[in-house]
């Protein structure tokens, strides 16, 4: 299975949670906490639902946290794509 990229994450974010005014999702956001990008926990939960639909893997709900950044989320998602069973361990 292919890698889940930042571009795909931005697309899912826009669709699942919208875009905060004054935040440029095309900018250098990899290490910016989602909180600072204007996404609260419910927005992230809805984004996780969107990612699961996009890549066809099941992600644990507890990956949503205050410190989560796009880079950490991409690593988690791609880890699950590489090892689908890991999410259930």
């Amino acid at each position: 299975m292919s890698t889940f990229t930042l571009d795909e994450l931005v697309r899912v974010l826009r669709e699942s949670a919208g875009e905060e005014e004054g935040v440029d999702l095309e900018g250098d956001i990899l290490d910016v906490p989602f909180d600072d990008l204007g996404y609260d926990s419910l927005a992230l939960l809805n984004t996780v639902i969107g990612i699961q639909q996009a890549v066809g893997v099941t992600l644990p709900d507890d990956i949503v946290s205050q410190e989560l950044t796009p880079r950490l989320l991409l690593d988690l998602v791609n880890g699950h794509i590489a090892r689908p069973a890991a999410g259930k361990a």
């Binding site: 826009r14 669709e15 699942s16 949670a17 919208g18 875009e19 905060e20 005014e21 204007g38 809805n46």
Partner: peptide, 8 residues
Amino acid sequence: LPGRLLPQ
């Protein structure tokens, strides 16, 4: 309305 409000 802001984009953040549309999905919710």
